[in-house]
Nucleic acid binder design. Structure first.
Length: 198
DNA sequence: CACTGGATCCTT
DNA sequence: AGGATCCAGTGA
């Protein structure tokens, strides 16, 4: 499909299948990142070695390492040359659940892929998977589109953990999730950069 | 080169 | 509320 617009792509990714290393999830929560004009995006300050994949063609995987221990991943959107992407935040494990439990060291099934770093770990995705083509048959990580979800089951809200440059917090409703789904991650407000003086 | 902060998660 | 823990961006 045409993955030019990160917002439309985010909606289409809900319900789609993300296939990792012997584990598959049905995506239930994502966030859109608009690229160089978006203060919350890794591409806000332009092209670098790390975010180069975001500037490439749509349908590739952008992953990054965070907080010393976590890897998260994104679906890169187009057009080629623009750094839009969709952060894959949560999903329901629909295949390989035993392996997912081992990787996550938990038996709470709703939490196996609840949160972007958990999702990545459950699927066995590594930082070195950055750049793989998510629609090529031989790739270690793939996306299979499903029927678009009706708009009335898609809810939107502010993004998690993103502190916008224009002030305190991110006010754009660029987070999308499946209404009522137990695998959607808990909302946490962005941490302020500096401790606010009370 | 050194310094700093992060699209998080888990435990207290 | 805080700690784990390392990569990448920034500035000298």
């Amino acid at each position: 499909m045409d993955a030019t617009d990160p917002f439309e792509t985010a909606r289409r990714l809900l319900g789609a299948h993300l296939i990792g290393r012997a584990v598959t999830v049905r995506l239930t929560e994502v966030e859109a990142y608009a690229g160089e004009r978006d203060p919350g995006s890794h591409a806000f300050r332009g092209r670098t070695a790390r975010n180069e994949v975001m500037f490439g063609p749509a349908g590739h995987l952008y992953c990054y390492f965070s907080y010393g221990m976590h890897t998260c991943c994104n679906y890169v959107c187009g057009p080629d040359g623009e750094a839009a992407a969709v952060l894959l935040r949560a999903g329901e494990v629909i295949d390989g659940i035993g392996l997912a439990r081992e990787r996550r060291h938990t038996t709470v099934d709703r939490s196996l892929a609840r949160g972007p770093a958990c999702l990545t770990q459950a699927l066995g995705i590594e930082l070195s998977d950055k750049g793989v083509d998510l629609h090529a048959t031989g790739s270690a990580v793939r996306v299979e589109w499903q029927a678009a979800l009706p708009s009335d089951v898609i809810r939107t809200g502010p993004r998690v953990g993103v502190s916008g440059a224009g002030g305190d917090g991110d006010t754009y409703p660029w987070r999308f999730w499946v209404d009522g789904d137990p695998t959607v991650s808990a909302y946490r407000p962005a941490k302020p950069r500096r401790r606010p003086r009370t």
